[in-house]
Simulated assay, not measured.
Amino acid sequence: MFKLTIAAAEQVVKAAQQGGTEGMSLRLAAYQMPDGAIDYRIGFDESTEDDIRLTCEGVEIVMTPEQVPLLDQTTMDYVEIEPGQFRFIFLNPKDPHYQPPTEV
């Protein structure tokens, strides 16, 4: 299913603490773009009874059942893109632009 790295989980927890959304779930959404690429959305939200729920690295994640096919096998990470610039990234083998990470 979906995975969250330890670095991403730590950042999600920090964001929840800073934003006053502790106790809320991290909602994931993914949309297929016309070129086949996948666009990701994340935010804190209350879960509904129809949501798919899972816990990764201590973070409760929710998504609608319709999101599962696009998010299955995806890993969300928090990485330094350039010195001092950190962001969440999604590693999804279903995305045509996916490139497996390389060891540095």
Rank of each mutant, 00 (worst) to 15 (best):
M1K: 08
M1T: 08
F2Q: 00
F2W: 04
F2R: 00
K3D: 02
L4H: 08
T5E: 09
I6R: 15
A7Y: 14
A7D: 07
A9E: 11
Q11S: 08
V13P: 12
K14M: 15
K14E: 14
K14D: 14
A15F: 15
A15T: 15
Q17G: 14
Q17K: 15
Q18C: 15
Q18P: 14
T21P: 11
T21A: 13
E22F: 13
E22P: 14
G23T: 11
M24K: 11
S25V: 09
S25H: 07
A29F: 03
A29H: 06
I38V: 07
I38C: 00
D39W: 10
D39T: 12
I42Q: 12
G43H: 02
F44H: 06
F44S: 05
F44I: 04
F44D: 02
D45W: 05
E46A: 10
T48L: 09
D50M: 08
D51E: 00
I52D: 02
R53G: 05
L54I: 06
T55R: 07
T55P: 03
C56G: 07
C56F: 13
G58M: 09
V59L: 04
I61D: 00
V62D: 04
M63C: 03
M63N: 04
T64H: 06
E66M: 09
L70T: 07
L71T: 01
D72C: 05
D77S: 06
D77W: 02
Y78Q: 09
Y78K: 09
V79S: 06
V79Q: 06
I81Y: 13
I81Q: 11
E82D: 12
P83F: 07
G84V: 09
G84L: 05
Q85T: 13
R87E: 13
F88Y: 03
N92C: 00
P93I: 00
Y98M: 05
P100N: 01
P101A: 04
T102K: 10
V104W: 12
V104P: 15
